[in-house]
């Protein structure tokens, strides 16, 4: 009897997008509802459920879930205040949505057999481009051409600018790339490692003989990596959100 478990054998299988519901094409594009869309929807529903419950309960003395939601609210607000100042709070709903969207996607991805939405570069790149677009549009809208002072920090002798301005421009252009690649690569690599060690444990066990003795080692490594990945999942959401705040701070105060 032969079972087919591609998710065990192939560490890449977990990233394969599968159509769940075929939808008619929109302007010639395939917009079918896939497993990626499904887990994204799950994350959104969970966020709305948790925070919606907390908001609709609205007790003066919070219960557990309300307390968690309020801590989340305070956490994001403090993050913005510490990096972009009080003015940054006008972006509070955006940063809040971004942080919890990524956080829930990463955390749902830690559940076995779940799809990790943020392990796809399309998604992270779209989010990073959204952030950079907001920084650019708001920066130019608010500061006009003064926004480009961002590339020429004041207080340096003139000949330094010959070197400094290209560096600043390159670092600005690199922002959406690094922002999207960091999250994508972390989630992808972490999940590949998890699957590799889990699969390795199974393969060793199946190989029989003396290999069985090694299987628990591989399994223990998988357990340890799970803990690490849980940390990475939270941390990467935080990193994405705090870098967003830093970039928004540039749009608010370009002359640093």
């Amino acid at each position: 009897m032969t079972y087919f478990f591609p998710q065990i054998a192939d560490p890449m299988h977990q990233f394969v997008v599968q159509k769940w519901i075929e939808l008619p094409e929109l302007f010639g594009f395939d917009i079918s509802f896939t497993n990626a869309s499904g887990f994204m929807l799950l994350g959104v529903v969970m966020i709305i459920a948790v925070f919606g419950y907390a908001a609709s309960r609205g007790g003066l003395v919070p219960n557990r879930i309300q307390s968690i939601a309020e801590i989340g609210y305070g956490f994001v607000a403090d993050m913005i205040r510490s990096t972009a100042g009080e003015e940054g709070l006008k972006f509070f709903p955006f940063v809040f949505t971004l942080f919890f969207f990524i956080f829930f996607a990463n955390m749902i991805g830690m559940v076995p057999y779940a799809f990790t939405t943020t392990s796809h570069l399309v998604v992270t790149a779209a989010l990073a481009l959204l952030v950079i677009s907001i920084v650019l549009i708001y920066g130019i809208y608010k500061n006009g051409l003064g926004f480009f002072k961002l590339f020429a920090p004041s207080g340096a002798p003139w000949y330094i600018y010959i070197l400094l301005i290209p560096i600043e421009v390159i670092s600005f252009v690199a922002r959406p790339l690094t922002l999207s690649l960091r999250l994508f690569a972390n989630m992808l690599a972490g999940h590949i490692m998890l699957k590799l060690f889990a699969g390795f444990a199974v393969t060793l066990f199946a190989a029989g003989g003396a290999y069985i003795a090694l299987a628990p080692l591989a399994f223990a490594m998988g357990v340890a990596l799970n803990a690490l990945e849980l940390l990475v999942a939270g941390l990467q959401a935080y990193v994405f959100a705090i870098l967003t705040c830093v970039y928004l701070s540039d749009a608010l105060h370009p002359s640093h």
Binding site: F29, I31, T34, S37, L41, V44, F94, F101, V123
Partner: peptide, 21 residues
């Protein structure tokens, strides 16, 4: 799957943003 991913990302992120904000 790029169009599908982007479509659902825009839709769901947009809905989440509107509901939250």
């Amino acid at each position: 799957h790029f169009p599908s991913q982007l479509f659902w990302l825009v839709l769901l992120f947009g809905v989440l943003y509107i509901v939250l904000s």
